[in-house]
Design a protein around this nucleic acid. Structure first.
Lengths: 203, 203
DNA sequence: CTCCTTGGCTAATTCAAATTAGCCTCAGTG
DNA sequence: CACTGAGGCTAATTTGAATTAGCCAAGGAG
């Protein structure tokens, strides 16, 4: 159907597997089901395709953070939702975060491409840090602060707690990104991590 | 001096910055201070240079793990060294680990290159996981088990503790890899993390 | 002192990938 | 029903990176 869109899709897939420099326009074209020269009816160069992907990333990212900001405010206002957060719910949040990051098709390709290209492009480096460090930590810090205020968790530094909660999730995710067969193992230790985290910090 | 060695050095530097596919043999040659065709007196192709770097990685890795195995046995046998491990010592271990990984020139380039190439090469993926997941976790699990047995730490799952200790260090390291200007910030939160970890788990 | 190997250079050569030229078809529009 | 523009194709063309050919200087070994 929409060839222009499909080109970006195929290109992102390939870039996320091999990196920009190791992907040939012929491969992109093949994935789309057309010949290489036809690509140029849609984009003026390979670089242009890359830029378009970046542009799309920026848009999605902005939408997501806008979304998150709303949700973020929600949990500040409407705090009774979290009044009785149970260990099982915490496990669900953690596993949910992990599974979403790991399996969401776009998220996954996006992350792999950022991983590969992060050192050659400052903007990508920032995007990566925002998405996989700043944002999750901010969000979870807020959540934990709330739980502390409500007396459900010990009065410890919520920033540190967020780091300790999130970093293992992130680390396990990177392992599964490169060795997908380890997902079961990762899920197992992930659950233990969350339960132990809860046990140690709950009041 | 030893041109053959220097080629590997320069090549690793470049590969770790841009990735194999975005580095031209001319750039390697320039870094070495010779012309591109002269490279072929030492290696038969660009790919061959890459292989030689891999080979060197493997050797160093094997040496290191052999080293670690000795040290590892040491702390099992000679456990009184750890009888009075203080919080400050724990901080030193953590910061030391972090700083070594982050600043050791070879380690750093090695890691960045693995980061970039991990998805295109199964061997690199495994090497990466071993060096930045399996090995550190094994090592720290052993250390923590010891502390638990000695009654210095709570009887919790040492594997999970190791994950919770190490993952934040790793995550902060990846942030600094792509945004070196954040190192001070990282060190600050890192220290807080370790102290809080100790506070929560110490017996 | 001559020889031969090592490691450098310049000037080709090769080759593959990106891009351009120019043609064709088809679908929608006046 | 002719026209036009979008989007595809094949066949060039360009480009530039990797590699090869072949020459040369220096220095150690006989």
């Amino acid at each position: 159907m929409d060839t222009k869109k499909k080109i970006l899709d195929v290109a992102l897939t390939l870039f996320s597997e091999k990196g920009y420099g190791n992907v040939y326009v012929g491969q992109i074209a093949e994935g789309v089901g057309i010949k290489a020269p036809s690509l140029y009816k849609h984009y003026k160069s390979k670089q242009d395709i890359f830029e378009a992907i970046l542009e799309e990333m920026r848009n999605r990212y902005n939408k997501e953070t806008a979304q998150l900001r709303i949700t973020g405010n929600d949990f500040r206002m409407d705090s009774e939702v979290y009044n009785h957060i149970s260990e099982d719910e915490l496990v669900k949040i953690g596993i949910g975060l992990f599974s979403f990051f790991l399996h969401d098709e776009y998220e996954c390709k996006f992350r792999k491409m950022l991983t590969i290209e992060q050192f050659s492009n400052k903007e990508l480096a920032e995007l990566f840090s925002n998405q996989y460090f700043n944002e999750p930590l901010n969000y979870q810090t807020g959540l934990l602060q709330l739980l502390i205020m409500q007396g459900h968790m010990k009065k410890e530094d919520a920033n540190v707690m967020a780091l300790q909660f999130f970093a293992p999730i992130y680390l396990l995710m990177t392992v599964c990104d490169r060795e997908p067969q380890r997902e079961a193992e990762a899920l197992q230790i992930l659950e233990k991590h969350i339960r132990q985290f809860n046990r140690m910090y709950k009041e």
